[in-house]
């Protein structure tokens, strides 16, 4: 998992509420053998018409937002199924942070497992950032995880909360595997002992 420290990037506004995981990545893309490569189908049904052509109005199809790294979204982002394909698709597109008033539980924790920072802010602050993002590519927003602050392009700062353990994992790029690998010494020792005790195993 990539470390997350400070991110300054283009933020795309998606004011829609209840954006569910089916919208984020429709079920026909779950038969993939990969986690990567899902970015092109991110928001597939909102993004492409029946013939596979881009729908120009959709925010991520607009020139200003094609390289967005942050999403500012309406309430209850990521509701629906538990599919880890949703954060996989966001990450593959290049999204590293999502800001909303609320998130669905499972999606919220799936984000952390995949190096994406979901940030919960009060409604008025999200609206401020939404307006800021709507200004286009020049309106870069900064997310500072260490300091736990979001800075709008006009310099306004919004502090946010984050679980201390999850913060530690993200800052250091640690997933479950990363954490276990911190104990690699213990695994080595175990293996050494096991080799003597159970050489056949």
């Amino acid at each position: 998992m990539d470390k997350f420290n400070t991110l300054t990037g283009i933020a795309a506004p998606m004011p829609l509420v209840n954006i569910d995981t089916d919208m984020i990545i429709p079920k026909q893309f779950l038969k993939t053998i990969q986690r990567s490569g899902l970015g092109k189908n991110l928001f597939d049904e909102m993004r492409y018409d029946d013939n596979g052509n881009e729908i120009p109005d959709f925010v991520l199809n607009q020139p200003a937002y094609r390289d967005a790294e942050i999403l500012i979204a309406g309430d209850n982002f990521g509701c629906g199924s538990s599919r880890e394909h949703a954060p996989w698709a966001l990450l593959d597109f290049g999204i590293r942070a999502v800001i909303s008033t609320s998130f669905a539980d499972i999606f919220f924790s799936n984000c952390f497992k995949n190096g994406i920072l979901p940030i919960v802010l009060p409604e008025d602050q999200v609206r401020h950032l939404m307006d800021d993002a709507s200004k286009g590519a020049n309106a870069r927003i900064t997310v500072d995880l260490e300091a736990q602050v979001v800075t709008a392009s006009d310099g306004t700062q919004f502090p946010f909360e984050v679980d201390a353990f999850k913060k530690h994992c993200l800052l250091n790029g640690l997933d479950d595997i990363g954490l276990t690998l911190e104990k690699v010494r213990k695994i080595d020792t175990f293996e050494d002992t096991a080799k003597t005790l159970y050489p056949w195993a």
């Binding site: 479950d176 595997i177 276990t180 690998l181 690699v184 695994i187 293996e191």
Partner: peptide, 8 residues
């Protein structure tokens, strides 16, 4: 993936 990477 966890087991592949860590054998635990």
């Amino acid at each position: 993936e966890h087991v592949l990477a860590t054998q635990t």
